[in-house]
Amino acid sequence: MTGAEIADLNLLIDLALLTMLVLVAYVMTKSRHLFAIVMLSGIYSLLSAAFFVSLDAVDVAFTEAAVGAGVSTVLMLGAMLLTVRREKPVRTGRSPLAILVVTLVGSALIYATLDMPPYGDPNSPANSYIGEAYVERTAKEIAVPNIVTAVLASYRGFDTLGETMVIFTAGLGVILLLGAGSARGGKLVSDVEEKESER
């Protein structure tokens, strides 16, 4: 295949993935069945991961597939068990004010995309300045082949330290909210025991 044919094929794959993303998102907003919504959100993450691969962002795609499609789907299922299986039906009246606000914000966002540089433009702000500097300097200063890892763990090591702290704090918050159990008559009981005593 020639370069132009490959570019056409890439465009076709991108369009197909984006169309499927919109479809999945639409079905998610329409469905009231929570199990179906959780599964669709997993599919949504998997489709975004495929789209990131198409954009050559394999590290991001990997994270999206592992965290978005894998762990968060399981955590959502776990959270779903603690509640009911179906969403409450909502009033489906149309408010003219809401439609006006949505239309305004939507057209503002579309107007903003007109200023964006074309995809893959070497002169775009993302590809020049600091991005270019990382690509040039990683081989000399860090000497690891994966530039993403060099930026994540070395150039931006302090940021990643903060991210690890955030994850640790999230875990700590969940332990404090859900894992401490309850006190009954001066004695610590687990959730399962407490439920049994209520029955």
């Binding site: 690890t164 640790f168 875990g171 969940v174 332990i175 894992g179």
Partner: peptide, 17 residues
Amino acid sequence: AVSSTMLMIFYQFAGRE
């Protein structure tokens, strides 16, 4: 840190039922 935190969150959610 990530693996233990993810598992811990899962344990806490799944352990309630």
